[in-house]
Design a protein around this nucleic acid. Structure first.
Lengths: 217, 217
DNA sequence: AGGTAAATAGCACGAAAGGGTGATATATTC
DNA sequence: GAATATATCACCCTTTCGTGCTATTTACCT
């Protein structure tokens, strides 16, 4: 984050008008330095290391290589480069993919120029500009609440059954579980049968998965 | 989201000046309806049901009950109410707690009045206003980067083995996996044996657990 | 005191999973 | 062109699981 230096920016955007418009915008803005613009990301590996951008504006939908894949590669080549995704609409899945792949911000193409500029500055000093709609999606992913009503089902397992379940989650075989709890394998079976009934599953793997996903991990 | 209705707002904020300032602001803004303001959240259970707010402005640090706990209760009482957290600085831990507890936005107290207003409108129509710094924190949490060096072990499974593993993680039996991939059960077994070798495990459950924890989930 | 639930244990059977071994046909790589 | 990796199928045998049924002891509830 070299501070009083100009922010070097590279654009990947297949729409020519948009690309040229943004190029012009960047060149006209003091504090920003236009470093390059390309209609696709296929030669990204050859471009990024030389151009050394601080910020990359990356269209999501491009011919050849998608912006999502491109974002991954940019972050691999230059982790310090911030990637700002550009898209026409807020596609839930793509947003998350981009985030997972290291994108630091998410803008709509219809964002007014002044805001694009401030988003660039923002992402460069460590922020993550995004629309509040996208932010909400991200938060909801975090909260991943059951849509309505009670929290998580309880299944009311007995204390003993819970312990057995935990052992199962550790990947133990019946024999091991028996030894661990100083009971016979048959008893373990008994408990596990009850657990299956309560969890509504019918195999060890399913039980472990359900336990892992829904409750006491 | 009753649209052309006024947005009913309740404030919880222990600082008197701020509380009264915001009250004034809300009352002076068309489209918003000030529904109440309180210096603490201790009687929240008695207030929220009667006031039926669309949006609650909630200070994080209050005497008695914290804004975080209060947010939880508000969401429990009226899930349709949006909670906007207010704080003086961006405390990482508290931000996450608030998010987990159902907060839909996160504002700094020093946010200018006009932006507070638009944040309220924003959160009411389904957005999640937050500073880009907070957004970055949230994204980073998503990306949960390995601090440095090696990522996760690869185990280099073949593409086919990966598919089989995924089916295992779905809790399928050998037979089901065979049907799913149009191969014989023996072939499935063959792949699974190789998977066990590579993952260094020796049972379905262990393999699933390892897969779930370390890699492709 | 009587009823209920949990924990324990056992028996039995069939199905599923895992170990061992071997074989064949493509690819890919060296 | 040989070696290697992958994908496929087969057979045998042992262990583990899933399930049905029963039974005893303890502990808790009313």
């Amino acid at each position: 984050m070299q501070n009083d230096q100009k922010i070097r920016i590279v654009i990947y955007e297949d729409n020519r008008d948009l690309r040229e418009g943004m190029t012009f915008l960047l060149q006209a803005t003091p504090g920003l330095e236009f470093a390059g613009a390309f209609p696709d990301a296929t030669n990204l590996e050859m471009q990024i290391p030389g151009l050394k951008p601080d910020v990359v504006l990356m269209d999501i939908d491009m011919p050849g290589r998608s912006g999502i894949d491109a974002a991954t590669i940019v972050k691999a080549l230059r982790p310090e480069t911030q990637v700002l995704m550009l898209t026409v609409f807020e596609d839930e899945e793509k947003v998350f993919q981009a985030i997972r792949n290291g994108a630091s911000g998410y803008l709509l193409k219809r964002t007014p120029p002044t805001e694009i500029i401030s988003a660039i500055q923002d992402v460069h000093i460590g922020g993550s500009p995004m629309t509040s709609t996208i932010a909400r999606r991200v938060l909801q992913f975090f909260q991943q609440q059951p849509p309505s009503g009670s929290s998580r089902p309880d299944y009311d397992l007995s204390p003993r059954e819970l312990e057995i379940l935990k052992s199962m989650v550790k990947g133990y075989s019946y024999k091991l579980i028996a030894e661990e709890h100083f009971i016979s394998v048959d008893t373990v079976r008994s408990h596990i049968r009850h657990i299956y009934e309560k969890l509504q599953v019918n195999s060890k793997t399913e039980a472990v998965l359900k336990a892992l996903r829904e409750k006491i991990v």
